[in-house]
Structure formats: structure tokens, C-alpha cells
Amino acid sequence: MSDAAGDRLFADPELDWQSVSPALVTERRLPVAVLALLGLGLVVGGVVARLSGNGAGWPLVVLGLVVLAVAALLWWVVVPRVVAAWRYAEREQDLLVSRGRLQRRLSVVPYGRMQVIEVSANPVSRRLGIATVMLVTASAATDARIPGLPTDVAQRLRDRLAAKGEAAAAGL
């Protein structure tokens, strides 16, 4: 219905939105690849069972194909879209993080409320040269996480946020 309004809410065109690195797609596809391998294994197993005359091979093949289809959907549709929908914008006084495709979310975190800014990277993301920046406030409900930032961008963002946080320091 009024999707234009929704777009304006979750991705205000007047703001300078930064998207995350496409390398995040690669990282998020990794578990999907594992799933795809599992599906493939099921299909092969089913076919082998069938050929060796054990009979009950078809259910396995069907299950494997379903798994493969799900993996394909995740690989080509879901992961790229989710990653594309993840973005952030720095405003004068606060940071905006917008994410989600089916369920859209937007978090507005005033710089003064940030307690810790965490930059982390698991082995895979280190390989890909990306890192996750996470803002921690006194509230566990604050959900401001920006994954998939190129390492140098992440570090600069962290420093910038830290400086702004200090300037706006407003206790609890």
C-alpha cells in the first residue's frame, strides 16, 4: 500500500547510506554451501542405493533435491538480498542501522549512549578482509550491528564513532 512511506522510514533517501561489502555475501554463502553439499550427498546416496538394488532410494533423492532447492534459493536470492538490505548512516547526533528484508528493522543509536564499540572478525571474515562493528549500549535490546565492513573502513568507523561518543558523552 504505502510502501513509499515505508521505504522512507527504513531508508530515508536524504541520508548518506553506506552499504556493506559484497564480501559478506561470500561469507554468508559458506553455510549454504555446506547445506548444498549435504543435499548433493543425499542425492548421490539415493541414486547409489537405487542402483545397487536396495530399493528405497527415491525418498532420499527427493529429500536431497529439496535440500538443494532450498540451498539454491538461499544462495541466489536470500543471502544477496539480506546483505544488500544491510546499511548504515551516520547522522550528526546518532547512528542509524537498517537491516532486514522480510522483517525490516531500523535502530537509531545516539552517540552519547554508546558504551562500547566492538570490532570483531572470525577467521573466515579475516580471510575476506571484512569485520563486524557492534555498538553496545546499556540496553540489551539495542540491536546495532554492522557486519561485512572492509577492515580499514571498520577501523575508521570505530574511531569516528568513539570520537563522537566522547564528544556526546552522556553517561547512562
Binding site: 500500500m1 504505502s2 510502501d3 512511506a5 515505508g6 522510514l9 527504513f10 532486514g100 522480510l102 522483517q103 525490516r104 528493522r105 531500523l106 535502530s107 537509531v108 543509536v109 545516539p110 549512549r113 549500549t137 546499556a138 540496553s139 540489551a140 535490546a141 539495542t142 540491536d143 546495532a144 547512562l172
Partner: peptide, 28 residues
């Protein structure tokens, strides 16, 4: 003074209806 951040979310049905839910994130 105690609100830590503001968030808003919109699920599929809400999107169809043109609705969204906003909340104030408090420290527990």
C-alpha cells in the same frame, strides 16, 4: 534520559498494511 536507542520494525503483514512498530530500548 534512560532510553538507549530507538528502534522500529516492520514485518511482512505490517508492510502490507502500511504499519510499523516503534520501541524505546531500555537497559533491562
Amino acid at each position: 534520559a534512560r532510553a538507549q536507542s530507538v528502534s522500529v520494525r516492520q514485518g511482512l503483514v505490517q508492510r502490507r498494511l502500511g504499519l510499523a512498530s516503534a520501541s524505546l530500548d531500555m537497559p533491562k
